[in-house]
């Protein structure tokens, strides 16, 4: 049981770290496109790892309700499909509307 708790803690820690990095990137990066680089990747893996930790915890703590674990696994799959697609949709909308990408040496906006 101790090993499971340690593993869940590590997974939650790494996931929370990546979510934090994504938010810091959203604040620090100079323009819209680069901000989406930070959030589109870090939120996918961070959220996925946190849900994976919850799934492992559920699998060993409440083994009688397997259905909830399957639901969480589906949630991970859905996040990994949906998040890049949503990022791509916003980015395409901005590109079609004519938002100029930031180049090296320009002012941040």
């Amino acid at each position: 049981m101790l090993i499971v708790h340690v593993a869940v803690t590590v997974l939650l820690g790494i996931g929370a770290f990546f979510l934090l990095v994504g938010s810091i990137g959203l604040l620090r990066f100079p323009d819209f496109y680069t901000r989406l680089h930070a959030t589109g990747k870090c939120d996918t893996l961070g959220g996925g790892l946190i849900i994976l930790g919850a799934m492992i915890y559920h699998l060993f703590q409440y083994p009688e309700t397997l259905l909830v674990s399957a639901k969480l696994a589906f949630l991970i799959f859905f996040v990994f499909i949906a998040n890049p697609t949503a990022t791509h949709a916003i980015m395409k909308a901005a590109y079609k509307t004519g938002v100029k990408p930031w180049r090296l040496g320009e002012e941040r906006r």
Partner: peptide, 12 residues
């Protein structure tokens, strides 16, 4: 983008 990010964090 910020709203989408907050939504993803809300799931976790």
């Amino acid at each position: 983008a910020a709203v989408n990010v907050i939504g993803t964090k809300t799931i976790a």
